[in-house]
Amino acid sequence: MKKMMLIAISILYLTGCAAFEQTGPVHVKIHDGENGTVKEVAQRIEDTKELYDSVVVAADSTLVVSYKVKHMNRFQMKSIEKKMKRWLTEKYPEKEIVLSSDYKIFMELYAFSDKWNTGELNEQEAMKEIEKIIKLKKEMT
């Protein structure tokens, strides 16, 4: 009984660790000319000390940003997101901005960036994928 408890606890502990380890940062630009955007956003996330690990995907109409919040700063998640959102909308008023600290969105974006980098997707398919991720992000229940 005690042994089983110990095993169960260590499994829980290990899975917990695996989920939140750093995998990025990853930067993806769909259209040429977004190089600068990606760099600027990535730098900004780098400078925010509450955050680690990020995926930035930039196209000419949309900008999708996902990041992880350091564990002890998770209580300030809302205000961090608010600040970030304000900064992005001011900087890129012509783009649709999607900002998320959701782990699922992070994973999806990461998988998308993998696919994009290996050249599996063309531009149109990529935009469709991004749309899908945005739709997932907007689901509330």
Binding site: L12, G16, K104, M140
Partner: peptide, 27 residues
């Protein structure tokens, strides 16, 4: 705490293998 950790594990599995976000995995 252990019960909640198991709950967290369930959430994680839902996110990994099903199209649920942190937002929607709660229910």
């Amino acid at each position: 705490g252990i019960i909640c950790t198991i709950g967290q594990l369930v959430t994680l599995l839902l996110m990994l293998y099903f199209p649920f976000t942190e937002q929607t995995a709660g229910n």
